[in-house]
């Protein structure tokens, strides 16, 4: 049997928020190590990879590996019924065709349970090799969200150009052109406000704004975001999830025709 207990169910609400714009359904692979999810969006342009380690949960038990195919719109309906401070328990039997979500209020005076049907999904899993990226940019996640939102007004694509001086985000279209440059922060009071760049080689790549904006739905999960880039390979946008692990988004670049 599978059982995972989470004292603050807001984390799972945020995770759901972070994936439901890109994915209609996904398989949650549960094992002793934790919960993992890997799925591409419908057009196979981007890929979401989620890792929630078992030791992040307040209680975790997984006797047998279990793949739960979940319709994310259905799960969203259920998670909307939970208060942010509710204690969440997810339960499923081995080989079950349903999963149960139980919400308990902090004072334990209200207990609700929701049973959800699982679906069979034949999802492709891609092997993503360990990669040494030419540029790794760390910046405040709110700043990244703001830049993606602002630039999407100017064009469908964003050019991200990273040198050791800093990182430049550019877009151009009918209105005109927009450029946002961020330099590495010299010194900041709070680590989460820092912009840092580790660069082996300068990189310039072009990406679709639409997907970058979808990735920023994860902003609530982490104060910082990490962008990893190398020439001619997908961008990795990573948000750490506290004691649990991370959510990573991979986005194939646009190339000159």
């Amino acid at each position: 049997m599978f059982e995972a207990r989470l004292v603050q169910c807001s984390m799972l609400k945020k995770v759901l928020e972070a994936i439901k714009e890109l994915l209609n359904e996904a398989t949650f692979d549960c094992s002793d190590a934790g919960i993992q999810l890997q799925a591409m969006d419908n057009s196979h342009v981007s890929l979401v990879s989620l890792n929630l380690r078992s030791d992040g949960f307040d209680k975790y038990r997984c006797d047998r590996n279990l793949s739960m195919g979940i319709n994310l719109a259905s799960m969203t309906k259920i998670m909307k019924c939970a208060g942010n401070d509710d204690v969440l328990t997810i339960k499923a039997q081995d080989n079950a065709d349903n999963v149960m979500f139980m919400f308990e209020s902090q004072n334990q005076e209200k207990v609700s349970d929701y049973d959800m049907k699982l679906i069979n999904l034949d999802q492709e899993h891609l092997g993503i090799p360990e990669t040494d990226y030419s540029c790794i940019i760390k910046m405040p996640s709110g700043e990244f969200a703001r830049i993606c939102r602002d630039l999407s007004q100017f064009g469908e694509s964003v050019v991200i150009s990273c040198t050791k001086e800093g990182v430049k985000f550019s877009a151009a279209g009918d209105v005109g052109a927009a450029n946002i440059k961020l330099a590495q922060t010299a010194n900041v009071d709070k680590e989460e406000e820092a912009v840092t760049i580790e660069m082996q080689e300068p990189v310039t790549l072009t990406f679709a704004c639409r997907y970058l904006n979808s990735f920023t739905k994860a902003t609530a999960l982490s104060p910082q975001v990490q962008l990893s880039m190398s020439a001619d390979v997908p961008l990795v946008v990573e948000y750490k999830i506290g004691d649990f692990g991370h959510i990573r988004y991979y986005l194939a670049p646009k190339i000159e025709e």
């Binding site: 342009v45 492709e124 991979y250 646009k254 000159e256």
Partner: peptide
Amino acid sequence: TNKQNNMKKYYDRR
């Protein structure tokens, strides 16, 4: 113009 690449161009099926 730029052409959008597909994720499967980069990573193989596991």
